[in-house]
Amino acid sequence: MINIQDLHFRYPNSEFQLSIPEFTVAPGERVAVVGPSGSGKTSLLNLLAGILIPSSGAIEVGKANVKELNDASRRDFRIRNIGFVFQDFELLDYLTIQDNILHPYRISSMLKLSNEVRQRTLDLAEQMGISKHLKKHPGELSQGEKQRAAICRALLPNPSLILADEATGNLDPTNKTRILDLLFESVAEHDATLVAVTHDHELLPRFDRVVDFQDFQSGGAS
């Protein structure tokens, strides 16, 4: 599913640089990425999503060579194949929770908004325990509720790769287990791959594999 070879990345005007000699993830595999702050975990997710472009090396996700795609194709590839749960949710204030979850369908022609999708939104919200908040705006929700809405948005298009950046970081222990269960269920149901950055070592045994970023050569702040 994921194959990174001899990847080098550096932010413009920054000392930080990330070097990954090799990183592979098999289809359907659930990988946890751990490491100290600033080690480049979030940068790795952004590189996998094609949000950041490596300065050298190869990065393949599925059949796509992310580095070789042009800007428009990379965006199309991302919205069609990747569900990204951002560390700070990144919900839009002016949209209701329902519209936030459906947002990917409204900003790209790659996804078609149908009644079935709308129904799935309701089902997902029900599973996440936020169905009563669908008509509210993010400003009216708690951090944990916002996080669950952000996860719904990532899961709705049934992506083949789910990238989760501290997806359970804002949740209480009960919700943490519930959300992780849901993530794993979704992964299993759609034969998807999960790469999750986490600081929560209690969760690590549930993943198929744990990658420690201290093994990679990086420096500076991400």
């Binding site: 999503a49 949000i51 800007d71 428009a72 965006r75 199309d76 590839f77 991302r78 919205i79 069609r80 990747i82 990204f84 951002f86 990144e90 839009l92 947002h103 990917p104 900003i107 790209s108 790659m110």
Partner: peptide
């Protein structure tokens, strides 16, 4: 930036 990160074209 959020919209771009989700995969929206310019």
């Amino acid at each position: 930036q959020t919209i771009f990160k989700l995969g929206c074209r310019k």
